[in-house]
């Protein structure tokens, strides 16, 4: 059981990083809860993962220098830690987006119905 969970989390962590970067690009500086909400809304009910798993991913991105953080205040005046993309983060996002598109394009070709390869 532990093994399966770990496997699932690895996949999640990989794509999660990309989603976080994309979210920050689209929304500008945002706190952890906001990022989690945004990802959940965008993905619909498909991503029913605990919000808590977001934080190690944020920490990893920060360690790698793709995002930075500082404390600020939310709309309704709550103290919160805001994350934003760094320049390296933007570059990394572009790169990962391209890679992702490539991967999905290849996969799409494989999975396209009725197209037998000769």
């Amino acid at each position: 059981m532990g093994d399966k969970a770990a496997e699932k989390r690895d996949v999640w962590q990989g794509t999660l990083a990309l989603m976080v970067l994309k979210t920050l690009q689209a929304m500008g500086p945002l706190h952890g809860y906001g990022i989690a909400r945004r990802i959940e809304q965008t993905s619909g009910d498909l991503l029913a993962v605990n919000y808590g798993t977001l934080y190690p991913a944020l920490l990893k991105l920060e360690q790698e220098g793709y995002i930075s953080s500082e404390w600020g205040f939310s709309d309704n005046n709550r103290k919160a830690k805001y994350y934003k993309l760094t320049r390296a983060g933007r570059k990394q996002l572009n790169k990962e987006e391209r890679e992702w598109e490539q991967t999905t394009a290849i996969l799409a070709r494989f999975l396209a119905p009725g197209e037998e390869r000769s």
């Binding site: 706190h31 809860y33 919000y51 709550r78 103290k79 919160a80």
Partner: peptide, 14 residues
């Protein structure tokens, strides 16, 4: 980090 989690919860509770 405790503070961050607290704020997360607070935002969510709001």
């Amino acid at each position: 980090f405790s503070a961050e989690i607290d704020s997360h919860l607070q935002l969510h509770i709001d």
